[in-house]
Design a protein around this nucleic acid. Structure first.
Lengths: 356, 356
DNA sequence: GGCGGTCGATGAAAGGTTTCAAGAAGGTGT
DNA sequence: ACACCTTCTTGAAACCTTTCATCGACCGCC
């Protein structure tokens, strides 16, 4: 056998790498230092001498070095990212929660990625899988189905989860919520006090915990007042959107006046705004013919055609608290899961009270 | 020297790995196959025999295997993620754009991460760096400062960028926008036709291209009508939010009636809604004392206290088109950058026309 | 001048996946 | 029985960074 013959001739495999040229290696070569030193400049600048650091930084700038986060994360094992998987980005309630999350994350030096399930269980599942594979620091989620096994399993595999706007008995996560049953109760008590007898509950789908809890609160208020819960006329919607609210308004306005409810409590403000808009355009007077109570007290509730009575939730605080719990869980070794519940507050405006 | 003495005794380094236990290696062992086969099951299931595949899948399930995306991406060099960095998640305009983006992304099998700069240049920069380091497939962005060098450099380093809701002359990206100058013109022409002479332009900050273009359109309409552009009373705001709109309303309502504008054109609907709300609550009648035109025609514009005349933009289409351009750029080798411009449309409602 | 100590820089190993050339096993036709 | 395919499976290399034990140089001090 002749050693000199047939050199290995390794065919160059091109792993579809983007033009992202320079890595630490190239920087090290350009700066005339070792790999480790470049890494130190990146991660522990204080241990490298000012002169060397300057050389390395110059090399980085001239080569256009961009750190490869995948490699960093693979080796270091930690991500500086936190995700909030929300139900519906079009609902200002959730974007306000997100604002709170970002506030807390920024304070801790983390970044937030927002994802939206759009009330679609498959999308929710797909995002959960993706985020787990990405090994994000943690996931904040307002779930569609809080009993999903995927959700339960995540924490045991190392990805902390905090449930937002839902309370959960599971011992696997923290949760931060607002007492929705109480909120429903507040709304209906208010309407009962105003003398309403035929009251509608507009909300759906019933797979959403929020929808069910608020309805249960409504029923409880009726019971407390000594009325049968059958007095609550339920209009089920397919989602919590303005469009669905309009649809409900259509159905409601179509009822004969003597069977039509005199008040409607909507599972959120988007529904309430749609309902309001449709009813007004069909000639019903609000609140004289139909009083309306919304939920969330989003910024637009006050600016509506008829300023909307609504149940207010501490949106930003909700997000901030959730993020803080998540951070505690991933940094504090003796973290204990908590269930935080805030108290909602009724904000009365023209849509129920008429005159100011 | 005695070979048997002092075994290396390598100290175990614990790279802070999360409990995420099982990797492909463990799965391979459990299933009695090789590493490569497990990888094949993951990436090219069709090449592995049904029997083997079943064994591997069973092993994955029982071990709770979660693929490490960092490692996958590091080796394979490609990400299945696309990011939309938006100006303000609280603005329904952008969440509608985002919806369009997700639609297109989902069709292509990609996932979308949403980020929000909140009109803060530092946050924008930080997110751009982060996304580049993550080596996302591409970035969609509604920029604060479209002349940022960071933005220009990204594509040359391998991360495609599409600018959304802004037109850009740079030869480095595609952009998808709506003709904002024309939009401003439409709004003001409408007001002039209605006989208004003292017109206010409410918007800011002037670093935002949208704000400037819409104002320029307004001025152009005045010129076309033979009026001096000084007729346009400018109220500069700090951001495009409801709260800033209220502030502007306060300022505006404070003017003596003979100097107060009879109409206001707002750079977006959030401002318009805030302005409307504040003016009404201070006793001005809309549109009799003050006509208002908004911009974007978000869903809440129609449901406002006084239904809002607004300039409509094809929001979802904007997002979808942008995402499609991005996908083309990253898959089609002879992609050419495009500038797509849509045409806005004036939607007249009560806030300018009074009676229906 | 020798000793201990500090500060900085070094380079090999490790992290989990994908890739691909090459090998093994099984089947078919003559 | 043999050559030739086809179909699956294999194992080592490569991706880029971080980590850490070790080494060299330099300083001050007895």
């Amino acid at each position: 056998m002749d050693d000199a013959e047939a050199p290995p001739e390794r065919t160059r495999r091109r792993p579809a790498t983007k033009p992202h040229a320079a890595g630490v290696k190239a920087v090290a070569a350009a700066a005339g230092v070792s790999l480790g030193t470049v890494s130190n400049v990146l991660n522990r600048p204080e241990v490298v001498s000012p002169l060397t650091r300057a050389k390395v930084e110059a090399a980085m700038a001239s080569l256009g070095f961009v750190r490869n986060e995948s490699a960093r994360q693979l080796r270091a094992g930690s991500s500086r990212i936190l995700a909030y998987l929300m139900l519906d980005a079009g609902n200002p309630f959730f974007t306000d929660v997100a604002k709170g999350v970002e506030e807390a994350a920024q304070a801790a030096g983390l970044s937030v990625f927002l994802c939206t399930s759009s009330e679609d269980a498959d999308r929710e599942a797909a995002y959960l899988d993706l985020l787990e594979q990405q090994r994000v620091q943690g996931i904040l989620i307002t779930p569609i189905d809080q009993h999903s096994s995927r959700l339960r399993k995540l924490p045991s595999r190392g990805t902390p989860v905090v449930v937002v706007d839902r309370t959960l008995d599971e011992a696997t996560h923290c949760s931060v919520a607002v007492n929705d049953v109480l909120g429903g109760e507040l709304a209906i008590s208010h309407l009962l006090e105003l003398g309403h007898e035929r009251i509608a509950y507009v909300g759906g789908p019933n797979t959403l915990g929020q929808v069910v809890d608020r309805r249960d609160g409504a029923r409880r208020a009726l019971r407390t007042a000594g009325k049968p819960i059958t007095d609550l006329i339920e209009l089920t919607t397919g989602a919590l959107t303005v469009a669905e609210g309009r649809g409900a308004g259509q159905r409601l306005a179509g009822l004969p006046a003597d069977r039509r409810p005199t008040a409607a409590f909507c599972a959120n403000d988007l529904l309430a705004l749609g309902l309001l808009q449709q009813c007004v355009s069909l000639g019903l007077r609000v609140p004289e013919d139909l009083a309306i109570v919304g939920y969330d007290d989003i910024e637009f509730a006050e600016a509506a055609a008829v300023p909307l009575t609504s149940v207010r939730q501490p949106r930003q605080l909700l997000g901030r608290t959730a993020a803080e719990l998540l951070l505690d869980e991933s940094s504090n070794p003796d973290h204990e899961h908590q269930r935080v519940t805030f108290t909602p507050e009724l904000v009365v405006r023209t849509s129920t009270r008429g005159t100011v």
